[in-house]
């Protein structure tokens, strides 16, 4: 199979270039990550990428694959048109090859205070939550922070410092939706300005690319509604 891969080593290269690799690999049963690691192991050990779990749960290997963001480890080779064009996640500073600087995403994640707040004395048993209440968090807690969504979002490309982005907003709503959290109001306050939440224009790239099938746009819509309802 033929691959065309984005290469950039700031120590060697004045600017990035695409490099073509021809690899003898059976597309059936193999994922893109298998191919990239085979290239690294057998053709070119300088090819640089992140990887860890190789099964779509750790979020290390988000990249741009034939124009669309996804995880290399769960993208079947058989589904890809050749030459397979592989680039780093867009809109983020490139450190080297397919490795990007995730700092803007991590900062926005941190900015929504992604932890449970409950000021009541801790009971000696678990805080009770009905299956229905727990179901409110389905589609929110599964996020793996791979960054595919935010780095596919034009609003995030333009304002990564002011717009929280779909990943961070999904996390914000995860705690609003949690019946155990007592700070929904403060969480909404934290999003109430022209940028942090409202720069989402419903383009829905985030939904299209999310490798876990999650829907940040829906979460964003619910928070917008909550803000309108409480008479922002």
């Amino acid at each position: 199979m033929r691959f065309s891969i984005y290469r950039y080593d700031p120590e060697q290269d004045a600017k990035p270039h695409m490099q073509v690799y021809d690899l003898d690999i059976d597309p059936a049963g193999n994922m893109l990550l298998d191919a990239l690691l085979m290239i690294k192991d057998t053709l070119d050990s300088t090819l640089t990428l992140r990887r860890s779990c190789r099964e779509g749960v750790c979020g290390s290997d988000g990249m741009n694959i034939n124009g669309s963001n996804g995880l290399a480890c769960i993208t079947p080779l058989a589904d890809l048109k050749q030459p397979v064009e592989v680039r780093p996640l867009p809109g983020l500073p490139v450190i080297r090859d397919l490795v990007v600087d995730m700092t803007p995403l991590n900062q926005q994640y941190r900015s929504v205070e992604p932890w449970l707040n409950n000021a009541d004395p801790a009971p000696e048993i678990e805080r009770l939550q009905s299956p229905e209440q727990r179901a409110q968090m389905d589609g929110l807690v599964e996020c793996i922070q791979c960054g595919c969504c935010s780095s596919a979002c034009p609003s995030f490309w333009w304002n990564p410092d002011k717009f929280v982005g779909p990943a961070g907003l999904l996390a914000a709503y995860r705690f609003i939706a949690d019946s155990r959290d007592q700070t929904s109001d403060r969480r909404l306050d934290n999003l109430q300005d022209p940028y942090r939440l409202f720069r989402c224009h419903g383009i829905m790239n985030c939904v299209t690319v999310c490798p876990k099938g999650l829907n940040p746009t829906a979460a964003i819509g619910k928070m917008k509604t909550l803000l309108v309802k409480r008479g922002a």
């Binding site: 678990e126 009770l128 009905s130 299956p131 727990r134 949690d178 959290d181």
Partner: peptide, 17 residues
């Protein structure tokens, strides 16, 4: 229990436990 209090989203039984 401590993990639950930290926010770990455990699945739940009908009685909320």
């Amino acid at each position: 229990i401590e993990l639950e209090h930290m926010g770990l989203p455990f699945s739940r039984l009908d009685n909320g436990r």
